[in-house]
Design a protein around this nucleic acid. Structure first.
Lengths: 93, 93
DNA sequence: ACCGGTACTTAGTATTACATAATACCATAT
DNA sequence: ATATGGTATTATGTAATACTAAGTACCGGT
């Protein structure tokens, strides 16, 4: 979700749809919501509310400096963990 | 941990050491223990207690049929999730 | 007036992650 | 004997995370 938000401001409902398109077909809005709430709580995002012509107002998120740092930190951890897990996988019988 | 156990019977303390050697340097025994407890609770392992000459008895774990199935299921999920995450990573700016 | 799609929020449970500390066994050195 | 250090499991508690179901509300079209 941090990575998705990093590509440009977006909002919960749209994030849900993007995740579903990515293949996480059974992600529901509630799941995404708890994560956006966490991002807010941890001050990793800036928030802007904008009206929509086709529904209720949208709450747009963008990564702030801390959010970007957090994302970079995540990618570092991902590189480490995924390489270790793949190492295990490749040694599998 | 399922993968580590799948390579041959082993016990908590040894698993901790293996994980540390793998690079997860700050894994402590308590963390491993909660996971072995979960494996027991979910009936994914067979248990055999054997004496040790250099300390208290060891509780050896081996994967049972359900455990092996669970592991295979994990590798399937891993292939999916890691490919999706890497897809995101590679599109990163 | 209702319906379906859009959109956020609430509230709750179950699981997971992790740390700290306690207990106990054994060999070796003092 | 006893102190110590490595080996090994167990107990207990807290915080974070994952996930679901249901509720509220806004809007356009029939």
């Amino acid at each position: 979700m941090l990575e998705i938000i990093s590509r440009g401001e977006t909002y919960g409902y749209e994030i849900t749809q993007q995740l579903r398109q990515l293949g996480f077909t059974d992600v529901v809005e509630g799941t995404v919501y708890t994560i956006t709430m966490r991002l807010e709580k941890n001050n990793l995002v800036d928030i802007e509310k904008k009206p929509s012509t086709i529904g209720p107002p949208r709450k747009f998120y963008t990564l702030n400096t801390a959010g970007k740092a957090h994302l970079e930190n995540f990618w570092g951890k991902w590189a480490f963990v995924s390489s270790k897990v793949n190492e295990l996988k490749n040694k599998r019988r």
